[in-house]
Design a protein around this nucleic acid. Structure first.
Length: 868
RNA sequence: GCGAGGGUGGCGGAACUGGCAGACGCGCCAGACUUAGGAUCUGGUGGGCAACCAUGGGGGUUCGAUUCCCCCCUCUCGCACCA
């Protein structure tokens, strides 16, 4: 290489510290409404301050930072904030286990993690930092709660709730996965409790409809939300219980099959069961109910069970045809959905069919397929498709789809039913029997009942003088100073609510607080919110597809209806990044091993050869984790970021590979040397400018073309596709080409056009690298003689003229096989290309003595000939 | 079972609307510089001696298919008695 340079080693540690402090000094990432350019709000899901950042964070925040830095360089007015989802169970557990107060534990973790994020070189506007555990923030949770309470959107009810016996708290339905607690995987119990609920169901339709207006979201997430909301249209029908005043209310999506009802199924926990069961059936029904309850606990999520039931002795009357149908309790009917009772139409519902076969109940066909008549005895399964109505009174002969409306109308006329819509979505239970959360601002008074804390008294601050035993109820219950309060209404002795809010409440509006973190009169300033919102690009893990993203959407709509802002949806575009995975390592003796325990392929404890396991999501339990701190320590933040972006496209899972990190480090070293080793040669050289021009050698012309092609590709890959991996590989190719080009011969004058092209290319490499590896880019930018820092510089724009080629390579296929390649001037006519193709020596060999049957020309790309 | 998304070299992954399959990186091989190099630089690297064969398997459409259509296998994720 170039002789006479003083070798300057690539030393990420020094460079990175230096630029981080310069950025801080310059306030490089401070966002302001008054700044120039179109607003762009980039947001990554804020972390829970568990102590240390992990590779998932590194990936998440690297992706966000690429976008934020790129868009800033593109001239956008970017808001890129960060904060802490800092209420939650781990802090309380730490208090119980180590005697540290949750507030202190959380504060320390935030300090540590903030340092880590800064060391990553992430460009956040820290002036907007929010921490949900601070009274400044959670005061507004309480404020919002009171507003919702006033509107009847927050209400209290006694109901069966999901209780996690390990977390000692209630869980929302969304927080129960396969019957297990989403956090600790303990089997969830049912428990009757008085709880606060938010009426998310009031927004069920809007939440559902808007999923069709979010083209920037992954279809997968939208489908999951739609399924979760689970809207079904149908009818509610009342069936009188024969000989009593009771009526069973059912929900059905198939009112057209009403004439085919041959029995009735109630959930085993249906409240009517006790009333209608006859004396002689009582013992059986109770035993059955107990069995179902026990099975649910053991078998939840286990899939299809055998359909079982027991006769109650009661009969109900079909309101349309007066038929008497036996009432059963059945294990497949869920109390939580619809009305907990199902009319059974075995001919047209598979579950009812199986049940009827088991218990010898009649099957009555009311819909025949278009050109077929069912023989009831020969049916092997239910017929759930469309057809023609039979055995259905005045509806006979109609298409069932047409009869549907008529039957609902008839029900309404008779006053025995009505059209109805049911959702799977339940109201959101937000009460948590925990200390480390936002207090619910309610006071209980003997005389006045549940009284809201006056707005002036907000925030209801969490008391610090509590003890953490891990036993019994929430520490707040034991805090007399907190509990003892006077009724805001009548002044008599009252008791404060001791439940705190689900932490998902905190994260349902934090993106709004970022817009005006200092707002004092309201949770956020309307003008600020309407300027910055909605978030243009939200980046986070797929695990929040339903819970957080649904709650945040709900809050956005609820706050809109409180008049706080005027938009409908919080997140225009959503990017769900894949998980960070790594191969597990196992010792037959000692189980899973951390990477450092498996050094040299042997178990650190017993020396047994390590067995390689599957590639799985990084987790402490599998010990296949890599500590970002150690990677940053060894290679620097730029390498760490670069690798996490290069190894896979963002939405896919990423396989962590130590060798791959090494490769990214090597590449940055290569860029470093490319600039440094040629520094004295390019000193004072002006980047090539095509206007005054200068004659370029064909090599220089090629390099210039590659440079501008790279600018075009990298821009496109970041902007349109988020394919950072291919963007980075394009930069690598340019660097490889520049190593070969190398015009820095001794004595090349600064006016040398080749040298000026080289300078232009070096500038491009460095600028293009900025979003991925910002520190090294800034350092090299400075070394190249720029006086304006890169973070204030503009993204390079490609020169259309530079992309032009003298000739293009056209592939010649003969009978579908590549037989030759020819260079033709771009834009050649088909006739000209045909002549050149047929004149090519190799092509001649393959076409000799053959006749040309077909000739296809794809301009500037390919010729395809068929010969025989 | 239903829904969604995948299956491409030894590995991670490229290939925009059908147009040279394997970019880029890792690993591996060779060479250069070196006392040495796990540093760096250069070159090579799907299989096969070849014709040819290769994008999970089998059909189809097409001049041409990783890409479009049909059938099957397989993996991952989500939902799972939703009436």
């Amino acid at each position: 290489m170039y002789v006479g340079e003083i070798e300057v080693r690539y030393d990420p540690k020094t460079i990175e510290a230096r630029w981080q402090s310069i950025w801080e000094r310059d306030g490089a990432f401070k966002a302001s409404r008054d700044a120039q350019g179109a607003k762009y709000y980039v947001l990554e899901m804020f972390p829970y301050p568990s102590g240390k950042i992990h590779m998932g964070h590194v990936r998440n925040y690297s992706i966000g930072d690429v976008l934020a830095r790129f868009l800033t360089m593109r001239g956008c007015n970017v808001l890129h904030p960060m904060g802490w989802d800092s209420f939650g169970l781990p802090a309380e557990n730490a208090a119980i286990q180590h005697g540290i107060h949750p507030a202190n534990w959380t504060r320390e973790n935030i300090t540590n993690m903030k340092t880590q994020l800064k060391r990553m070189g992430l460009g956040y506007d820290w002036d907007r930092e929010v921490a949900t555990c601070l009274p400044d923030y959670y005061k507004w949770n309480q404020w919002i709660f009171l507003k919702l309470f006033e509107k009847g959107m927050a209400y209290k009810k006694r109901s069966s709730v999901n209780w996690c016996p390990s977390c000692l708290t209630v869980l929302a339905n969304e927080q129960v996965e396969d019957g297990l607690c989403w956090r600790c995987s303990t089997i969830v119990d049912a428990k009757e409790l008085e709880q606060w609920f938010l009426k998310i169901t009031a927004y069920a339709d809007e939440l559902l409809d808007c999923t069709y207006k979010l083209p920037g979201w992954p279809e997968k997430v939208l489908v999951m939300q739609r399924n979760w909301i689970g809207r079904s249209e149908g009818a509610e029908v009342s069936f009188k219980v024969d000989g009593t005043d009771e009526a069973i209310k059912i929900f059905t999506t198939r009112p057209d099959t009403l004439y085919g009802v041959t029995f009735m199924s109630l959930a085993a926990s249906h409240p009517l069961l006790a009333k209608i069961t006859t004396a002689e059936r009582k013992a059986d029904v109770e035993a059955f109910a107990a069995k179902v309850k026990a099975d649910r606990r053991v078998n939840r999520g286990a899939g299809e069970e055998i359909k079982e039931g027991v006769f109650t002795g009661a009969y109900c009357i079909n309101p349309l045809n007066g038929d008497r149908a036996p009432v059963y309790a059945a294990n497949f009917v869920l109390m939580e959905y619809g009305t907990g009772a199902v009319m059974a139409v075995p001919a047209h519902d598979q579950r009812d069919f199986e049940f009827a076969k088991t218990y010898g109940l009649p099957v009555r066909v009311v819909i025949n397929p278009p050109s077929q008549t069912f023989d009831t005895d020969a049916m092997e399964c239910a017929y759930a498709d469309e057809g023609v109505m039979v055995n259905s009174g005045r509806f006979n002969g109609m298409k069932n789809t047409d009869a549907m409306k008529g039957i609902v109308k008839l029900l309404e006329e008779k006053g025995v039913g009505k059209g109805s819509i049911t959702y799977k979505l339940r109201d959101w239970g937000i009460s948590r029997q925990r200390y480390w959360g936002c207090p619910i601002p309610i006071v209980y008074c003997q005389a006045c009942g549940a009284v809201p804390v006056p707005y002036n008294d907000l925030p209801v601050v969490l008391p610090e003088d509590v003890s953490f035993t891990g036993k019994g109820l929430s520490p707040l219950v034991e805090s007399p100073g907190f509990i003892g309060v006077k009724c805001p209404k009548c002044g008599s002795k009252a008791r404060r609510e001791t439940d705190t809010m689900d932490t998902f409440v905190d994260s349902s509006w934090y993106f709004l607080r970022y817009c005006s973190p200092m707002a004092t009169g309201l949770p956020f300033d309307k003008k600020d919110a309407e300027y910055w919102m909605p978030v243009d690009q939200y980046v986070g893990g797929i695990e929040h597809a339903v819970m957080h993203l649904l709650y945040a959407r709900f809050f956005t709509k609820a706050l809109r209806d409180l008049g706080l802002h005027g938009f409908d949806e919080p997140f225009t575009n959503l990017l769900t990044q894949g998980m960070v995975c790594k191969e597990t390592q196992k010792c037959p003796e000692h189980g899973f091993l951390f990477p450092e325990e498996a050094a040299g392929g042997k178990c650190g404890r017993c020396g047994h050869p390590v067995e390689a396991g599957a590639v799985e999501k990084m987790s402490k339990s599998k010990k296949n984790v890599v500590d970002p701190d150690k990677i940053i320590e060894k290679y620097g933040a730029d390498t760490t970021r670069l690798f996490s972006l290069f190894a896979a496209p963002p939405e896919k899972d990423l396989d962590w590979s130590a060798d791959g990190v090494e490769g990214s480090y090597r590449f940055l070293g290569r860029v470093w040397r490319l600039v440094n080793e040629n520094l004295s040669a390019v000193k004072g050289v002006k980047a090539y400018d095509p206007r005054p021009g200068g004659v370029l050698s064909s090599d220089a012309q090629d390099i210039r073309r590659i440079t501008h092609e790279t600018i075009k590709k990298v821009t496109h890959d970041i902007e349109e596709r988020f394919h950072f991996n291919t963007a980075i590989s394009a930069i690598m190719e340019l660097v490889n080409a520049l190593y070969i080009f190398n015009p820095c011969r001794d004595g090349a004058s600064p006016e040398d056009a080749g040298l000026r092209v080289f300078m232009e290319s070096l500038n491009a490499v460095v600028a293009l690298l900025t979003p991925f590896a910002p520190h090294i880019a800034e350092e090299l930018w400075e070394k190249l003689g720029h006086t304006t820092a890169l973070h204030k510089a503009r993204w390079p724009v490609y020169d259309e003229a530079a992309l032009k080629r003298d000739s293009v390579l056209v592939v010649v296929q003969i009978n579908g096989k590549v037989r030759g390649k020819i260079n033709v001037p771009p834009g050649s006519t088909e006739d000209a290309v045909r002549g050149m193709a047929l004149g090519d020596e190799k092509v001649k060999e393959w076409t000799r003595d053959k006749t040309l049957k077909k000739f296809v020309y794809v301009p500037n790309k390919l010729v395809s000939m068929v010969v025989s």
